[in-house]
Simulated assay, not measured.
Amino acid sequence: MIIRYQILFACLFLLAACNHNPHVRDSQLALMKTTNPKPVVTDQNKSNDSVEEIKKDVSSFPELYDVAVIKGKKDTLVVYKVKHLYRFNMKKIEKDVNKKLEKKYPKENFTVSSDYKIFLEAVRLDEKMKSAKFSHKEAEKRLEDIVKMTDKTK
């Protein structure tokens, strides 16, 4: 009986040891943990200050725990994760977030979503933007595709 426990423990130990990978990207863990990506601006002529302010405003909601903001030429994508206890109020939360953003930034065109798939795509775009091979034009095109995805999911 003791030998069985030792074998079981050894197998579990080996599986746990093989699981450690220091090169795991945020997009691979985005659905399981808080990634808290930095706000991204796809238009190289715009500053990052207003985007930081938008992220701070959305993060101030107690129901939310992870926020990603991507600002393009025309659209600003705001994606967030809702804490588990507040998932029944998602429509109200989205309405409140939208209302606050429209009131504070009337000239911006916001797309707000709590969809995990959209959040994952936003994190992937953030990772691609860090690459030197990914141009601002490609990032703007990808942002437009993500915004179109939000229309399909509603």
Rank of each mutant, 00 (worst) to 15 (best):
K73D: 07
Y86P: 04
K74I: 14
E94N: 11
K100A: 14
E108A: 11
K73V: 06
K103S: 13
K103P: 02
T76H: 03
N98Q: 06
F88L: 15
F110T: 09
M90T: 15
I70L: 01
Y86D: 13
K103Q: 13
E108T: 13
H84P: 10
K83I: 10
K91Q: 15
V82D: 06
K107T: 12
Y105W: 03
R87K: 12
T76A: 01
F110A: 03
N109L: 05
N98F: 06
S113V: 02
F88N: 14
Y86I: 09
K100I: 11
N98T: 12
N109F: 07
T76N: 01
K103A: 13
K99Y: 10
E94I: 07
V78Q: 01
K92H: 13
K92V: 11
Y80C: 10
R87A: 11
N89E: 15
K74P: 02
K91G: 13
N109G: 08
N109H: 10
K71T: 07
K107S: 14
E94H: 10
Y80P: 04
K104L: 12
K91P: 09
K71L: 04
K99D: 06
F110M: 04
K107I: 03
V97T: 00
L77Q: 00
G72K: 01
E102T: 13
K71V: 06
R87F: 03
T76Y: 04
V82G: 12
E102D: 15
K73Q: 09
V78N: 02
L85G: 14
N89K: 12
K103D: 12
K95L: 09
K104S: 08
K100Y: 06
M90A: 15
V82P: 00
K95A: 13
F88E: 15
K103E: 13
F88H: 13
L101Q: 02
P106L: 12
V82I: 15
S113L: 02
K99M: 11
D96V: 07
F110K: 03
E94D: 09
K73Y: 05
E108K: 02
Y105P: 00
V79W: 01
L77I: 09
T111N: 02
E102Q: 14
F110W: 04
S113I: 04
E102A: 14
D75C: 00
P106G: 07
I93Y: 06
Y105M: 02
L85S: 14
K100W: 10
P106V: 01
N109V: 12
V78Y: 04
Y86L: 05
E102H: 08
K103H: 14
K91T: 14
E94V: 02
P106S: 07
S113K: 00
V112T: 10
V79F: 08
V112F: 05
K73N: 07
T111P: 01
L85C: 09
P106M: 07
T111F: 05
K83D: 06
V79S: 10
